Amino acid sequence: MVVTGKPDSWIEDSITVRRMGLADLAWVVAQHRSHFPDNVIGRLGLGLLTRYYRTFLDSTFAVATVTEVSGVRAGFLVGVLDTAAHRRLMWQFHGFSLGLATLRAFLRHPVLGVGIVRRRLSLRLHPPAPMPAERVAVLSHVAVDPDSQGRGLGVMMIDQFLAAAAAAGADRVCVATADHAPRAASIYLRRGFVLSSRSRTFDGRYIRLYDRPTAAPAP
Rank of each mutant, 00 (worst) to 15 (best):
A218C: 11
P130E: 08
A170V: 02
V63R: 03
A133N: 09
G99P: 06
A165I: 00
D82V: 04
V29W: 07
F202Y: 13
V78F: 08
C174F: 04
V2C: 12
T102R: 07
P130C: 10
V28A: 00
S97Y: 03
D24H: 09
G152H: 03
H141W: 10
P128A: 07
Q149E: 06
L139S: 00
R183C: 05
V175H: 03
G21M: 09
C174M: 09
S196T: 09
F56A: 02
L48Q: 01
R88A: 12
R200N: 07
T102D: 01
I207H: 09
L153C: 08
A105V: 00
R205S: 14
G154W: 07
D171K: 04
A184S: 15
P217Q: 04
G21A: 11
A185C: 12
A74M: 00
A85I: 08
A143R: 07
H109W: 06
G113P: 10
L195W: 10
T83V: 14
Y53K: 06
A74L: 01
R87G: 07
A143E: 06
Y210H: 09
D8Q: 11
R88F: 05
D13Q: 15
L125C: 04
D145M: 08
R51Y: 00
P217T: 03
P37E: 05
R120M: 13
L89R: 13
P37N: 12
S59C: 10
Q160F: 01
A74G: 13
A216R: 00
V3H: 11
E68W: 01
V136K: 12
A176I: 10
V111A: 15
I11S: 05
P128K: 11
R191F: 01
A168W: 00
C174E: 15
L121Y: 08
S148F: 15
A62E: 02
V2F: 13
R104Y: 01
P127G: 11
G42N: 08
A84L: 04
V66W: 02
V114S: 14
T177F: 01
H35D: 13
A30H: 01
D82K: 02
V78E: 09
A164Q: 14
L89E: 15
G115S: 00
P213M: 01
A176Y: 10
L121S: 00
F36K: 02
A137V: 07
H180N: 15
L103Y: 01
R208A: 13
M20E: 05
L121F: 04
V175I: 12
D82P: 05
Y53I: 00
I116C: 08
V17Y: 01
P37D: 12
A184F: 05
M90T: 06
V117F: 08
A170Q: 10
V194N: 09
L57P: 07
V2S: 14
L25G: 04
G192T: 03
L100Q: 10
H141E: 14
A167Y: 00
G113V: 02
L77D: 06
I15T: 13
L195F: 11
A176H: 11
A218N: 09
A74N: 08
A166H: 11
F161W: 06
G99H: 05
R151A: 02
R108D: 01
H109D: 12
P146M: 08
V155E: 14
L48Y: 09
F93E: 14
L139M: 12
G99L: 05
F202N: 07
